[in-house]
Design a protein around this nucleic acid. Structure first.
Lengths: 116, 116
DNA sequence: TTCGATGTTTGACGAACATCGAACAAGCTA
DNA sequence: TAGCTTGTTCGATGTTCGTCAAACATCGAA
């Protein structure tokens, strides 16, 4: 819960990023974060157990797609859009647009009344 | 070898496409086809056995990323760029550019003197 | 300090995947 | 017909992945 390791921008791997995005739950999570706002863990609702959700958030974090910040006992997740754009220019936008257009990653949504 | 099934453009799944691209060998193959030219199977050289290469080409084909054409006993592979652009506008270009920029999918290259 | 809330980690499981060599099938060519 | 070339398919194997429940760790509050 403590050592949230985030890879440096220069170390982001394209294959790893694409692979991380190639899962419905994770793509749905990224879609939720697309507006750039930071979200509380508790706001994230996916059709999987919380341990599985934790796993997916870890995969996204390890791939450098999201950044996790801890505050007290709560966690906040945000998209590393600037870093991704710097390393893979133009990649994120069409992914998000296509995901939105085809409603990919459905089943993942914001929970009513969550922290932050 | 005969029934090369290609999904219709309208059925292409973003998750499936991203997942298919999230492998070094497959991304390397896509990079080779980036110039739009059709390539003969025999031209493709990857650091895997031919049965494995056949498998990867099948994954790409099933995801709708490539099109395979058979002519006699030979096969030719090409990128379905127009279809991908139609279904996922703007997605392919930055993927190819980033792959090129970071030399992703290395190990896959064109073989000297192959069919076509 | 005890309790409750919040995520993470662990252990386990089946499914999917990447990989290989060998056998196979299809189509030229001799 | 027999043989060669070209890919595909078939087991087999070891790995990774997605998933869950349960145990654990951390922090704030009572």
């Amino acid at each position: 819960m403590r050592d949230a390791h985030h890879p440096h921008t220069r170390d982001l791997s394209l294959v790893e990023v694409l692979s991380a995005l190639g899962d419905p739950v994770r793509l749905g999570l990224v879609r939720l974060l697309a507006d750039g706002r930071e979200r509380g863990w508790g706001q994230l609702s996916a059709p999987v157990a919380k341990s599985t959700l934790s796993h997916h958030l870890r995969v996204l974090r390890d791939a450098g797609i999201t950044r996790t910040r801890q505050e007290g006992t709560r966690c906040y997740v945000a998209l590393r859009r600037a870093d991704l754009d710097a390393r893979f220019p133009g990649l994120l936008a069409p992914v998000l647009e296509s995901a939105e257009a085809h409603d990919a990653g459905a089943g993942v949504h914001l929970r009513e009344s969550g922290p932050l």
